[in-house]
Design a protein around this nucleic acid. Structure first.
Length: 402
RNA sequence: GGAGAGGUUCCCGAGCGGCCAAAGGGAACAGACUGUAAAUCUGUCGUCGAAGACUUCGGAGGUUCGAAUCCUCCCCUCUCCA
């Protein structure tokens, strides 16, 4: 096992805050002395299974802990999922069935294991400890905190002050998350900085149960592709693990230039020294496009391999810089000919409605074999291998059916 | 339990009997430009073979030639009082 200094150096990298740092040092010392791995906690809510690269910032940290010999513990929040984290924007939550929880967490873990070390990961469900609780236990949990403590928390206070509804069950959220730390006896909890309150709740909760208190290791929040809000599903500014390589590449290319270094730091495995070089390069005024392309390649490679990264980059240049046609285009079989162009666009799902299809034609966004379509009444003679293009990035190959 | 305010199109938010498919902003999409699905500028932004028609302003009824706008009941949220 590595010495305390080495471990600390590795842990501190790319981390915004460690609360309290002294405790972390003590924990590592103890772990080395007793040769016992630390238990590193991270919780997920199985409300869905779309994992984006923002979620993976703390997960990468967990992997580093695992590489240092420690144990990662993933909590499947099958109880907290019924509430919805108040720090998020989610409003009402439909109740989750057991099957949904199972399906979501399996898919979720599949994505996390692109980063984590399976042999050093423990998966635990909240229902293991909350499932058997009765009302007395719940009251006991609630008696540990005051309302004032919760109202001091920014997200609760803001909701309150802006006159938005704040439900009682939402107040339970930090309590449940906090008790998880007691249940699994965690040494360290990982999360983004917005999780500070919840994670510190876990610390308090452990103290109430006379346990060693966990340390909060907080990662910065990854901004979304819009460059303004945190990456998240509700704002549709996220890059998902399940996104196709080409989409990942394109989404990275759409981030504002000032986010490039941020992404290099938190969304790739590029060495910090190398990132320093990139920073200098950016400052020296070289074209950010090429640096962003490298970033996009790095991110795609991380999930799909270096080869795919190169391939996708070529494809991107082809379509957007040289305005050519992509190599692989989805095919669509048409048996009726001639076919009204608007019908073709809607039937093939290139456009959502007839109105949209007409609009696209009017705006000069539709072309067939490179020829712009201007007549929205066009009866198209269907020939095989016609390439239809809508906007910049929607392509379809028409196959003549019989 | 009492008193007040409010629920509008993906989101925020105006409208308070016809000129409302509903201002403005954001998001999204398209075009131009470029260094890219950056930035900027311009345009579009309910559905229907587009003519007119149909559906939409928390829900259900009603008044009216005509309702997002008025009335009744219901559901939901916020504020103050207890």
């Amino acid at each position: 096992m590595k010495c305390v200094e080495d471990q600390m150096k590795m842990i501190k990298k790319g981390v915004e805050e460690i609360i309290p740092k002294e405790d972390l040092i003590k924990k590592i010392e103890k772990s080395i002395k007793t040769n016992k791995p630390l238990r590193i906690k991270y919780g997920i809510d199985p409300t869905g299974y779309d994992v984006h690269i923002g979620h993976l910032v703390p997960i990468r940290k967990m992997r580093e802990f695992q590489d240092l010999g420690h144990t990662g513990v993933i909590i499947i929040g099958d109880f907290t999922a019924q509430i919805g984290d108040p720090t998020g924007r989610d409003e009402s939550r439909p109740p989750l069935t057991a099957e949904m929880v199972k399906k979501n967490s399996e898919k979720y873990m599949e994505q996390l294991f692109t980063v984590l070390d399976k042999d050093k990961t423990e998966i635990r469900y909240q229902s293991e400890w909350f499932g058997g609780m009765n009302m007395m236990d719940v009251i006991k949990l609630m008696s540990k905190f005051t309302l004032a403590q919760f109202m001091a928390h920014d997200t609760f206070r803001k909701r309150w002050e802006s006159g938005n509804p704040l439900f009682m069950n939402e107040i339970m959220y930090p309590l449940l998350q906090g008790y998880d730390s007691v249940a699994i006896n965690s040494d360290i909890e990982l999360g983004a900085t917005e999780q500070k309150f919840n994670i510190l709740c876990g610390r308090d909760m452990q103290r109430f149960y006379n346990m060693d208190q966990q340390v909060a290791v907080l990662s910065p929040i990854l901004l979304g592709t819009d460059g303004i809000n945190k990456m998240g599903k509700s704002l549709n500014n996220y890059i998902a693990v399940f996104d196709l390589p080409f989409d990942k590449y394109g989404k990275v290319m759409s981030i504002p230039d000032n986010l490039i270094l941020n992404y290099f730091n938190y969304a790739t495995k590029v060495d910090p020294d190398e990132i320093d070089n990139i920073k200098k390069e950016l400052e020296s005024g070289s074209n950010p496009k090429y640096i962003k392309q490298r970033l996009a390649r790095e991110i795609v490679s991380l999930y799909h391999g270096a080869e795919e990264g190169m391939k996708v980059e070529e494809e991107f240049n082809k379509i957007f810089s040289q305005k050519e046609i992509p190599t692989d285009i989805e095919e669509y079989t048409v048996s009726q000919s001639p076919l009204w162009i608007v019908k073709l666009l809607t039937d093939s799902n290139l456009c959502a409605s007839g109105g949209e299809a007409r609009r696209m034609i009017k705006q000069g966004a539709v072309s067939i074999n490179g020829e712009k379509i201007t007549d929205e009444n066009l009866q198209l003679e269907i020939l095989s291998e016609q390439i239809i293009k809508v906007g910049k990035r929607k392509f379809l190959k028409i196959i003549k059916g019989s």
